[in-house]
Amino acid sequence: MSKNVLLTGGTGFIGSHLIEMLLENGYNVSVLSRSSKKNNPQVTYYQWNLKQNLIDEEAVLKADYIIHLAGEGIVEKRWTSRRKKAIVESRVKPIELIHSILVKHNKTLDAFVSASGIGIYGAKTDHKICNENTPPANDFLGTTCQKWENAVDTIGALNIRTVKVRTGIVFGKDEGFIKKLAPTFKSGFGAVLGSGKQYLPWIYIDDLCRIYLKTIADEKLEGPYNACVTDNTTNSRFSKTFANLFGYTIWLPKIPPFFLRFLLGEMSEAVLKGQRVSSEKIQETGFQFQFTDLEKTLINCIK
């Protein structure tokens, strides 16, 4: 019989791609959504409301695997106190609700897989290469990811295999990170941010979805895994490569840090700093990235 996979955040950029790949691989897919809209006739949709602590229990009880992708965008809005709270709660609260249902019904799962972020290593730039054993940072991104992963551990305490996918910047065709930047670069106004030396660990959407498939199919996978290409791409290299694809060399001066801090506040740290991150652990499981060349990947995103 086909296994049932339940997704939170299944209507977003990553979730919509992952659904297609899961269906292609013979899984039954269901989605927890705030909307009653049914985007895909092959998917079963269940409703939830985090503000009211409501979740359709049937969604959890029918699941063999749960993949948790839900969460407010990190760089969508300025980091006010209210926004920070929403970012954390949108990641942690769904896990708490799912945990309560699992306990209430003594329900087990084949695996619980959660998104996380390389932001756990902090908003800082140095030459140290971070791996899964690197301690979490004490800044906002670091503590957010730590709370996120601590919530996942409560599922693990129920004797359920758990996996945490620490994701880098996700590239995709006309979506996500690329969608935000493409209009500016296409119009000839691309620029390097800050010093340009900050690292930009990235992953193409297809590779990320293949990692999620591996986390549910491979019972040996457990704990955190970095999901990004280890090629030491910096903001400067990315920006110059992206501009070249639109037929020009960057002519604007680097956007100074003080201007970005004025414009974005504390959130500017997310774009002004970045870590080198190793993907050795996931590759040691036999996973092979299909998209490792920055220029070719970016061409694939805009063609």
Rank of each mutant, 00 (worst) to 15 (best):
K254A: 04
A182L: 14
A217N: 12
T241G: 11
L252M: 13
Y212H: 10
I255D: 00
G247D: 01
W202C: 02
A227T: 08
P201C: 03
A243F: 01
Q198T: 06
E266F: 09
P257M: 07
V170F: 04
S195R: 09
Y248N: 02
F262E: 12
Y204V: 04
K179T: 08
Y248P: 01
R210H: 07
D207M: 10
F189Y: 15
D218L: 09
D207A: 08
P224V: 05
Y212N: 07
L208W: 05
T234H: 03
T230A: 14
S187F: 12
I255K: 00
G168D: 08
D207W: 05
G188H: 01
K180V: 13
G188W: 00
R261M: 07
I203H: 04
G196I: 00
D231G: 08
P183E: 05
E175C: 14
K240R: 12
S195T: 11
G247R: 01
P183R: 02
R237Y: 07
T230M: 14
G188R: 01
F258C: 10
P201S: 08
L252Y: 09
K173V: 06
K180R: 15
N244G: 15
T241A: 09
G190I: 02
F238C: 08
P183Y: 02
L260K: 05
T234I: 03
W251L: 13
A243H: 01
G172K: 10
V229F: 03
S195E: 07
K197G: 00
W202G: 02
L208Y: 04
L245N: 10
D174Y: 14
F259E: 12
Y225S: 11
F259I: 11
W251V: 05
C209S: 13
I211T: 05
F177N: 15
S236T: 13
Y248K: 02
G190R: 07
E175I: 12
G168Q: 09
D207Q: 10
D231E: 14
R166E: 11
T167N: 10
K214H: 10
A217I: 06
C228A: 14
L252E: 04
R210P: 04
Q198A: 09
V192Y: 00
